[in-house]
Design a protein around this nucleic acid. Structure first.
Lengths: 197, 197, 197, 197
DNA sequence: CATGAATGAGATTTCATTCAT
DNA sequence: GATGAATGAAATCTCATTCAT
């Protein structure tokens, strides 16, 4: 065995990340269909053929990104959950939101339906996406529930608060090209969840 | 003149509306890119060639819809402004929002950037879009300004309130496929703008 | 009978000429395929549908023009033949050539093959074209024969002189956009056919 | 690097030539407009899509051919110029003219205007065409000037002789489908430029 | 006759995907 | 693995021609 298998796997991982990293910027910029495989390849400095060694289709790249995004979002939530109270926790999410460019495309939920219905994405990944989304909502709901209970948030149905939160985060991206002070939406939004003093 | 000119003009208007009416449903359902000209033609019960008699490209149809939407939105605002106070006014908007299916696609602002950069849309229309959007924001800001002054809304920068409002309306659509009670987002959102009693 | 049949036929003739007159300019400018039926209609100030009352296809318009051109060319030859000697005769042709804009497209022999093979032209017309061309060559040959015999032209095969003459006339058109003194080609050409003094 | 770059470049060159070689025959046969991309592809034994890998449009193929033709024509002139006197030189051009099928389309100057005005041809190429044509005329004029001076040609304006020469070459092609002895035009034409003995 | 809306065949063009090297 | 030439399905778009009014 002339090659080091571990090293090979590492390389594979690296390549995969390369692709995703560059793909996400393009997806965020131009959307799913307007982003060409060859754009991604060029940006990532490789041949377009090589991409098919790592992903079976463009849709699969996109699906992977949403998957990653949901997971990282959930992880971030969980991590913050260890040390923060609900209010601080969500403020942290909002504060870091625009740093998490990497994951933005994951919020292009617009396209999710296309992905879910696409033959070009394997079933496993599709199911993972559905599951992941539900988990995020569930986790957020739990946080809001606690926040409402301890008075950090105004009363209401926690699940509605959760969707409201996601809605505005989504809106943040959609409107991100407008010229308001960075992330004003997020903070404004959160402020509405605080009880008046 | 062997034909009735007025009738012809009416016909043209009708056809234009036919196309827009069916296009908007498809755009709302599948987005800009996944909607094919031939889909629109089939749905509208005409040949694809005919569409090019009325619009020079798919993007132009889309742009027309946004344009119409902005205008109708602005008109609705202006009309309500005659008789309603700010709070009632915005509640009216939210209440009727899901009835205005026709215009929904106009809120797919996701694609607006593509439209704005597309060669397939004539410059005039592009400018109208930009202008229209600014006018809507300006009008909303004015409403919020009054609402803040008369105590109907919590204090804040009216323009931020306006963007927040639009953001959530936008989010409403993006998430509209999920199973929450209709338009919970909109009402939830507005509730955050009311001062506590 | 409410309508005057003769008047109707005159009108038909006029319309036909209208179409041809405007078509020829476009064909001369842009060629056969690049000229659209609707261009011709617009230029002639009528609806495109009406053109089909007079010609069964675009190719037929083109074929008609060549036909007319050949005929008028032959007539001109025959008319001049009554009073002129060969040398004067051909000089007359050359001199008037650029005034005969009307017929220029008839010299776009480039497209003749397309016409001859097109289903959109009726057989009769096609045969007329072939016949017409042969007649022109025959007539020119006869003129050159006389001119050679009476010493007005240098010796040679009359038929070759004829083709040479047509060749350069054709070339004249092809190069007509270049900036040489009007019709220098024609005169230069003829000068080579004169014996030195 | 898994592929042999040199081999790839050769391949690209070959393919480009393949396309041009087959395109020129079709253009010569049917003209610019009647030649479809798919005709070229079929004749060249490749998929139509591949052609777009090498040329951005049909017009660009055509323009390339004219460009090549002008260049090869100029080179031929320059090469012959090393060893031949003007008269011999031009006779050489005429003699070889029908062997140079490859370049024929370059003489379809008929279409050049369309090419020059087409968006589908890049500016650089257009300028090269204009430049190339002027250079050819200039070179020919110089040859005629010398030929006139040394008595090989009849007196006259060299530039006119040059245009006359090109005109007839052009005419040769246009009439090439007719049944005269091969290239009679060319020789006939040149004979008119020789002083009588 | 005259019009222009409507059709649909056919051409251009793009690009995801495959595969020989 | 890596490359990019090659394919071909699918979309866009054009326009000659027909036909109801």
């Amino acid at each position: 065995m002339a090659r080091n298998i571990n090293r090979d796997q590492e390389l594979r991982k690296e390549r995969t990340n390369d692709i995703l990293k560059h793909a996400v910027e393009l997806f965020a910029q131009k959307g799913l269909e307007a982003t060409k495989i060859s754009d991604i390849a060029k940006k990532a400095g490789m041949s377009h053929g090589l991409i098919y060694n790592y992903f079976k289709s463009k849709e699969e790249i996109y699906a992977s990104l949403i998957h990653l995004n949901l997971n990282s979002f959930k992880e971030q939530l969980e991590e913050l959950y260890q040390t923060k109270k609900p209010k601080e926790l969500l403020e942290g999410i909002v504060r870091d939101f625009d740093k998490r460019k990497w994951n933005e495309a994951g919020f292009h939920y617009f396209f999710v339906e296309q992905i879910i219905n696409s033959d070009a994405v394997n079933t496993e990944l599709k199911e993972a996406l559905n599951r992941g989304y539900d988990e995020v909502v569930a986790f957020l709901s739990r946080i809001f529930k606690e926040g409402i209970e301890n008075g950090e948030f105004v009363p209401g149905v926690p699940e509605y608060h959760a969707h409201y939160f996601l809605t505005v985060l989504q809106g943040t991206i959609v409107f991100s090209s407008k010229s308001l002070p960075q992330n004003i939406y997020g903070y404004t939004m959160l402020s509405y969840l605080y009880p008046l003093e």
